[in-house]
């Protein structure tokens, strides 16, 4: 893909971008099914307009807002981020969207706000995977407020220069590039500022395997596989996994003094 690339930095990378065909046909989105090709196959049942996002909790300006209005509040930016799945594969994704921090500053967290909780749409009519109880629906994710305010933390509404495909979490999804992919909650309908650490879906489903923090860490293995290497989709040989997925310079200071083996 020949395109003029901006100067490199944490918002960009010189690594080749994962082609659209692969980025949109191989992913986890259990709301559609547990198979990697289920999301692309079944995503037609999701209706992303009209779509309302409720922003509430410990904020000064709670709001219930239409997705198109929400998007119009911010200039949309490109971010080319590495995406590392906890299963040991990775991609390079060209997102379009806005920093979560910009949204949070607009709705003004109050002094009690310590965490941000995200909730996906819960509608078994649109999400066939929610007709079973493979996970405790709706999908919930969370970040510490300082993580949420970090300039890398992003709300995506587009991919590869077009609207976000349903299977990738349309119309609004979280992207936190230094964490494992399951933190990047899709099809968000609610963002709630909380005092307490949110009870997140995968951490509840398998607490010994998936933690709240889920920072990419080659030194902390999953119980069933090493996290030291990853397969970049499209490559045969595995490559070493980098601490914080290569974003250590930007985010390591958020976790100063924490035992990252315990808070995995």
């Amino acid at each position: 893909m020949a395109q003029a690339r901006r100067p490199l930095g944490p918002y960009d990378t010189s690594e080749p971008i994962t082609p659209y065909a692969q980025a949109t046909t191989y992913n986890n989105f259990y709301e559609f099914g547990t198979g990697k090709d289920d999301p692309a196959r079944l995503a037609g049942s999701l209706r992303t307009r009209p779509w309302t996002v409720l922003i509430d909790g410990e904020v000064r300006k709670p709001v219930r807002v239409d997705i198109d209005t929400l998007q119009s509040w911010f200039p949309l930016e490109d971010r080319i981020y590495r995406m590392r799945c906890v299963e040991g594969w990775s991609m390079v994704m060209p997102w379009l969207g806005f920093p979560l921090g910009a949204l949070l500053r607009r709705i003004e967290p109050n002094s009690k706000a310590k965490y941000v909780q995200f909730t996906s749409l819960h509608d078994p009519k649109q999400f066939p995977g929610q007709r079973g109880d493979v996970l405790d629906w709706p999908y919930v994710e969370g970040l510490r407020l300082d993580e949420a305010l970090h300039p890398l933390t992003f709300m995506a509404v587009g991919l590869h220069g077009r609207a976000l495909p349903n299977q990738n979490g349309a119309p609004l999804r979280l992207v936190v590039p230094w964490k494992y992919g399951f933190k990047n909650i899709k099809s968000v309908v609610r963002i709630t500022l909380t005092q307490k650490q949110p009870r997140t879906t995968w951490a509840l489903a398998a607490p010994d395997e998936y933690g709240f923090y889920a920072n990419v860490n080659p030194k902390v293995p999953h119980p069933r596989w090493s996290q030291a290497t990853e397969r970049r989709i499209g490559e045969l040989r595995r490559r070493p996994t980098l601490p914080f997925n290569g974003y250590a310079e930007e985010v390591a200071s958020l976790y100063k003094g924490m035992d990252l083996r315990r808070f995995f």
Binding site: Y26, K36, D37, R231, I233, G234, L236
Partner: peptide
């Protein structure tokens, strides 16, 4: 399937 690239994005897996 492998030769035709029909094993998806992560063929080894």
């Amino acid at each position: 399937d492998a030769q035709m690239g029909a094993l998806g994005a992560n063929p080894i897996q």
